[in-house]
């Protein structure tokens, strides 16, 4: 309460500050949901995670400095939540495979291009640290430096993860596209999974 005001603008306090904070937090919900969806690969799990992160952010609102990057801050909260949940129920690759299959089944728009399904699946095959780096930089609109802050690692680490993720994705998709010729999508999926396993075994 007694924090000295910076410059001559009176700092927002109490309910007025909460209101400003909440308004901005609400605008970030769609982005939190999208980030959570790519991390978990499952819509229901993702919304649970995004809700947890939203509440965590709300509860920690006093520690957030208004005017700084709330999107990066909330993404960091969501990411930490994701990993602490995961540590609690670590079923590792088994879970990934199940989530990947559910994700594919969950795409109920028959007009959706197959390539997007394959990309979803290919993404779910990447190691988490590559997946999150690629999605933050490649789709979330974050600079490498911001992504490094969110992931708690060096900028160079983010860069190499993004680069490895791109290569791996391309490898997975190319194999899938090749095998799809004259076959059912299910066969392509199985071969994509097999390829992803081979890729991660090599790494």
């Amino acid at each position: 309460m007694s924090a000295p005001p910076e410059k001559d603008t009176a700092p927002l306090e109490g309910l007025a500050r909460d209101k400003v904070f909440q308004r901005e937090l609400v605008t970030l919900i769609p982005h939190l949901r999208a980030f959570a969806r790519t991390l978990t690969g499952d819509a229901t799990q993702a919304d649970d995670l995004a809700q947890d992160a939203m509440i965590k952010a709300w509860d920690a609102r006093a520690s957030f400095q208004l005017g700084t990057n709330m999107k990066a801050w909330t993404f960091m909260i969501l990411r930490n939540q994701f990993y602490s949940d995961k540590r609690r129920s670590w079923r590792s690759t088994q879970l990934d495979q199940e989530a990947a299959e559910r994700t594919l089944v969950a795409v109920d728009d028959p007009g959706a291009p197959l390539a997007l399904d394959e990309l979803r699946l290919a993404m779910s095959m990447l190691p988490y640290e590559q997946r999150e780096a690629l999605i933050l930089v490649g789709a979330g609109g974050f600079a490498y430096e911001e992504a490094a802050d969110i992931c708690g690692c060096a900028v160079g680490t983010v860069k190499s993860r993004v680069s490895r993720a791109r290569k791996a994705l391309q490898g997975i998709l190319e194999t899938g596209a090749y095998d799809r010729d004259g076959r059912e999508a299910g066969d392509a999926m199985r071969s994509i999974i097999a390829d992803a396993e081979r890729l991660s075994a090599i790494r």
Binding site: D47, L116, A139
Partner: peptide
């Protein structure tokens, strides 16, 4: 192409209507 599709995949979720649950909880 992968980059474009990746953004498309992400934006698809961003553009979904936010479930009421979120605002209720808040």
């Amino acid at each position: 192409a992968i980059g474009v599709k990746l953004r498309q995949m992400f934006d698809e979720v961003v553009n979904e209507p936010v479930p009421d649950e979120f605002l209720d909880i808040l």
